[in-house]
Nucleic acid binder design. Structure first.
Length: 284
DNA sequence: ATTGGGACCTGCTCGC
DNA sequence: TGCGAGCAGGTCCCAA
């Protein structure tokens, strides 16, 4: 589910409520067969023990990961996968179905990790022992960061031969884009998603760079995209607003707002890809 | 080394 | 109404 704008929104909705709180207890719910939640971690007991008693100093986002900076130098890293939600729920509210983990914090705050499809992950990372090989530390540049320049994007695209869409989805190339914002950015830049990434010229790369940043900023401003099935909500249960601004994603069969051609889909790297066949020509 | 395809899960929608 | 097929915002693993 969540891409960069959704994770950023969740972070913002959590930060003020979590900063300075202490993790009193960590509860791993029994139905977690096949859950990747802790698979990077040897034992649940050690995981919960290392978290208990720590206070949360800061909450940050890196790509689609949420990083809880804990007192003592450890970082709890969460990834929400496809269907994950983080919800702040008062104690009187029963735990929702598919709750996998609960952080019981000071002052009666309860943070629930709900994840029907079990694709979410948790890491507990120590800055000192520094196993930097784990995924959250092997990512490409933040697309909204300073280092993501048109020149940087050009380097990334020019050394790859895959389709531009699959390069943009590769978190080691650019970190934080997912299926929705890839399709939207390529549409705005009028680039066909199946173009070989090394064939984009300077002008196209500049347009794509602009489109990626503008779309992500707009989506963050509208607090993310809550698509048709309404799965994505922030930590206080609020839906996002960017779905109103979608131009191709989930608009198969509808008219292109720009040229009236019918929006079509294709498969690229196994992902449904939405595009306008007229605005996004496959030829250079 | 890079790339594409399948696997991992559950729930929902659609067509028969 | 009921059932199976297909699909879903992500990432990992493997074979080519």
């Amino acid at each position: 589910m969540p891409e960069l704008p959704e994770v950023e929104t969740i972070k913002r909705s959590l930060k003020r409520r979590l900063k300075g709180k202490t993790i009193r207890k960590v509860e791993i719910l029994p139905d977690s067969q096949g859950v990747r939640l802790l698979r990077r971690f040897p034992s649940r007991a050690a995981f919960t023990r290392r978290l208990a008693g720590r206070s949360i100093k800061d909450l940050r986002r890196r790509a689609k990961y949420l990083l809880f900076y804990l007192e003592g130098g450890e970082i709890l890293i969460l990834h929400l996968g496809m269907s994950g939600q983080l919800l702040l729920l008062p104690l009187r509210i029963p735990l929702p179905p598919h709750t996998r983990m609960v952080l019981h914090l000071s002052e009666g705050v309860r943070l629930c990790f709900v994840d029907p499809r079990k694709f979410g992950e948790a890491y507990l990372f120590s800055e000192k022992t520094g196993e930097k090989r784990v995924n959250p530390f092997l990512l490409g540049p933040e697309p909204l960061g300073k280092e993501f320049t048109p020149k940087k994007l050009a380097e990334i695209l020019q050394r790859r031969k895959a389709t531009v869409k699959s390069v943009l989805l590769d978190q080691k190339a650019v970190a934080g884009l997912g299926n929705i914002y890839c399709d939207e950015a390529l549409f705005r830049a009028r680039i066909h998603p199946a173009r070989n990434s090394s064939t984009l010229d300077k002008k196209e790369i500049a347009l794509l760079h602009r489109a990626i940043r503008d779309i992500l900023r707009e989506a963050v401003g509208l607090r993310g995209t809550t698509a048709a099935d309404r799965q994505y909500v922030d930590a206080r249960g609020r839906a996002g607003g960017f779905q109103e601004s979608l131009r191709v994603y989930q608009r198969k069969g509808e008219d292109c707002h720009r040229c009236r051609e019918t929006i079509r889909t294709t498969k690229i790297s196994g992902r449904t890809t939405h595009f306008c066949p007229a605005c996004q020509s496959p030829d250079k």
